[in-house]
Amino acid sequence: MRALTFAPGKKGTLAVEEVPDPVPGKGELLVQGLALGVCGTDRELVTADYGWPPPGRERMILGHESLGRVLEVPDGSAFSPGDLVVGVVRRPDPVPCGACKRGEFDMCRNGEYTERGIKQLDGYCSERWTVEGGYAVRLDPSLESVGVLVEPASVVAKAWEQIERIGSRSWFEPHTLLVTGAGPVGLLAALMGRQRGLSVHVLDRSAEGLKPQLVAELGGTYHPGSSLRELGGVKPDVIIECTGAGTLVIDAMIGTAAAGIVCLAGLSPGGRTHRVDAGLINRDIVLENDVVFGSVNANLRHYRDAADSLAKADVGWLERLITRRVPLSHALDAFERAHDVKVVIDLTT
């Protein structure tokens, strides 16, 4: 079968090649790959920023934003041939740490976890793949064209779960959400904010085009720019920061209403410095009982929550997030920089 593979830690090794067909192990599903989403993590992997191959191997299959259709199931499985599924990315560490031992592998404490397509496990960018039944999530058939968005949506679902847990420390009735960054994660965060009945504001550098349209169609307010000054005095109760831009991260820390919550969901590049008034930041957070926290990855329940959120959304709106579909035969084209919201590799062509 064909698969998109690379050698972690080595630039210029990304290639579509023939690899052996997967053989399901005990309790595993055999799945026909339908689509694979490409994100910033994948681009960092192929430029050798990080990545860990399976033990004893140099190359591995890329891809963690999966979508497939079940071909074969083991005896007694809760799945059936024909089911639309996605595979969870992370697996708990074998030690295990206290969090992994309790099923909270997305919060692994010792870093010994593994991840499909990223760390020591083959990914999902192949014509066929296998997945343990306990790490697969069934999707509503209506999501066939957009189910590849479940993985990024799961990251947002986890962020919302954490926001709501933090909010429950006291009376919590948020009205206004700000999302910084209108990429796939930011737009999905805005979608889930609207599903919660919040007034949604989205800040992004793009002044025109698809992003403002998508926000408007959600009933949100779009602010072109790169600073919270563009908000015109809006004080959100919740900020989900999806850019990783240092100045926006700093602005967000002091940009909420009292008892505000800031979720940092974007990754900042290292090596850049910013002049900040640390005392001002400290006073604002302390005197207003604010919370700033980071969130990454997702657990099985977050995938299920994400699938539910997408099933409730307008499929036409979700389809517009996917701005380019590339056949597997030309998968390397998916990594060329373009003005995309979301690029997807079609594993059937």
Rank of each mutant, 00 (worst) to 15 (best):
L36H: 02
S199L: 11
L36N: 04
N299W: 01
P94I: 13
F172Y: 15
V86Q: 03
V38C: 06
T348R: 12
R169A: 11
V315C: 11
S170Q: 13
A153Y: 03
G209S: 15
V146H: 01
W171K: 10
M1W: 05
V315M: 09
E161G: 00
L332P: 06
G232M: 05
L347K: 00
S126F: 05
Y135D: 15
A252H: 03
D305G: 06
G255I: 07
G63F: 04
E65D: 11
L143P: 02
P236H: 11
A153M: 14
V249N: 05
G98R: 10
G271E: 02
G147Y: 02
G270Y: 10
A338D: 02
S329W: 02
P174V: 02
G233L: 06
E164V: 03
L67Q: 04
A252N: 13
V148W: 01
P327W: 03
L36Q: 04
T176L: 04
A159N: 05
L177A: 04
G147A: 07
L287I: 07
V23Y: 13
A78Q: 12
D314P: 06
I118V: 13
R91G: 08
E58G: 11
D346W: 04
G123F: 01
G134P: 10
T243V: 05
L328W: 02
G294R: 05
P236K: 06
D346L: 05
T130H: 02
T243D: 00
S170W: 09
L287C: 12
L347V: 07
A331N: 10
Q120P: 08
V238I: 15
G183M: 04
D284F: 09
L178K: 10
E161M: 11
I285H: 03
G316R: 04
G68K: 05
G193Q: 12
A157L: 09
L45Y: 01
V341N: 08
G111D: 03
D305R: 02
S145D: 15
A259K: 07
A190D: 12
Q213C: 09
G316W: 00
G260H: 03
V156R: 00
E144K: 15
E132Q: 14
V131R: 00
G103E: 10
R138Q: 08
R59M: 04
L30I: 12
G87Y: 03
P212Y: 14
A182T: 04
D21R: 12
E173C: 03
A78R: 15
V296D: 01
L62T: 05
V148S: 12
G117Q: 00
R304Y: 15
S142N: 09
R272V: 08
V137R: 04
T114Y: 02
K211H: 08
R169C: 03
P74M: 11
